[in-house]
Simulated scan of single mutants.
Amino acid sequence: MEPLLLLHGALGARSQFDPLLPLLPAQVPVYALNLPGHGGEPFPNGPFTIEYFAGQLLTWLEEHNLPPVQVFGYSMGGYVALEAARQKPERFSRIFTLATKFNWTPEIAQGETAKLRPEVISEKVPAFAQTLQQRHAPPNWAQLLRHTADLMLGLGQTPTLSAQELAQINVPVCIAVGDKDQMVSVEESLAAYRQLPKGQLHVLPNTKHPMEQLNWPLLASALQHFFSYA
Results as ranks from 00 to 15, higher is better:
A13S: 14
E2Y: 11
L190T: 15
L155V: 03
Q213V: 04
L6R: 05
G77H: 03
N65E: 14
W141T: 02
V28W: 13
L204M: 15
P29G: 12
L61A: 05
V120D: 12
R86D: 00
A230R: 14
I169G: 03
N206D: 14
H38K: 09
L166V: 02
E123L: 12
W104H: 07
Q195D: 03
Q143E: 15
V28G: 09
G12L: 11
P68F: 08
N103C: 04
P106R: 03
Y74M: 05
Q182S: 14
T49F: 05
R94H: 11
Q130M: 01
E62F: 02
N140G: 03
K101M: 09
P106E: 04
P25G: 10
K101Q: 13
D18F: 13
S93C: 06
L6N: 04
C174R: 14
L6M: 04
P25T: 11
P172K: 03
N140W: 01
K124Q: 14
Q87F: 01
K198Y: 15
L144H: 02
A167H: 00
F43K: 07
G40H: 08
F72S: 03
P126N: 02
E212V: 12
V173L: 04
Y31L: 15
T105G: 01
L116N: 07
M183G: 12
N45K: 13
P67W: 05
P47F: 08
S228D: 15
S93M: 00
S185F: 05
Y74P: 05
W216A: 07
T158E: 14
P139S: 02
T160N: 02
Q16F: 11
H147F: 14
G73Q: 07
Q134W: 01
A222V: 04
I50A: 06
L223H: 09
E119K: 12
A176N: 07
G40R: 08
Q213S: 12
S228Q: 15
L161G: 00
S221F: 08
E187T: 13
V28P: 09
L204A: 09
S162R: 12
E63G: 02
A13Q: 14
S122C: 12
I169C: 02
L58V: 04
S162W: 00
V120I: 15
Q130G: 00
D179I: 11
E123I: 00
S221I: 10
G154P: 06
G9L: 13
L7T: 06
E83Q: 10
N170D: 14
G46Y: 03
L132A: 06
L153P: 03
F72K: 04
T49E: 08
L145K: 06
L219D: 07
D18L: 14
K101I: 02
H64Y: 10
Q70R: 13
V28F: 09
P139R: 02
V203F: 10
M152N: 13
L153M: 13
D18R: 15
L223N: 07
Q213L: 14
S228Y: 13
A32Q: 10
A13K: 11
A32K: 08
L161Q: 00
